[in-house]
C-alpha cells in the first residue's frame, strides 16, 4: 500500500457512476422488448441442437454487458461420435452483439 492508495481507497462513487451508466444504457434499450442477447442465445443453441444432440448442462453461457460492445459467449460441449464415453471439447463458439 502506498500513499496514493490511501487517498484512493474511498473513491467508489466514480465506479458506481460508471456501472450505472452501462447498466441503464442496456435496460433502457430493452424496455418492453425481449433481450437481443437472450434471443440470440436461444436461437444459436436451437441451431446446434438441430444437428447434434447436446445436453443443456454441457452448455456454458457467459454474458458481459459492456460499453461499447457486449459479448455473449456460448461454450457447447459436443460429444464425440466414438463409442467411448470420452468427450472431446470443441472450440468455443462466440457471438458478439453490440
Amino acid at each position: 500500500m502506498n500513499l496514493l492508495s490511501l487517498f484512493r481507497r474511498n473513491n467508489s462513487a466514480p465506479v458506481a457512476r460508471e456501472r450505472l451508466q452501462v447498466l441503464l444504457a442496456h435496460e433502457r434499450a430493452f424496455v418492453g422488448k425481449s433481450d437481443l442477447l437472450a434471443v440470440l442465445q436461444e436461437e444459436i443453441i436451437a441451431v446446434i441442437a438441430k444437428h447434434v444432440t447436446i445436453e443443456r448442462d454441457k452448455v456454458q453461457i457467459t454474458l458481459d454487458r459492456g460499453d461499447p460492445v457486449s459479448t455473449l459467449e456460448i461454450d457447447v460441449e459436443i460429444p464425440s461420435a466414438a463409442a467411448t464415453k470420452a468427450r472431446r471439447r470443441e472450440p468455443s463458439m462466440s457471438a458478439v452483439a453490440s
Binding site: 474511498n10 473513491n11 467508489s12 462513487a13 466514480p14 458506481a16 457512476r17 450505472l20 451508466q21 441503464l24
Partner: peptide, 16 residues
C-alpha cells in the same frame, strides 16, 4: 461524503 468521492454526486445522478 460526495466531495470525498464516497457517494454519487448530484451531477452524477442528474446526468444519469
Amino acid at each position: 461524503r460526495a466531495t470525498r468521492g464516497e457517494m454519487l454526486k448530484t451531477e452524477d445522478v442528474l446526468e444519469i
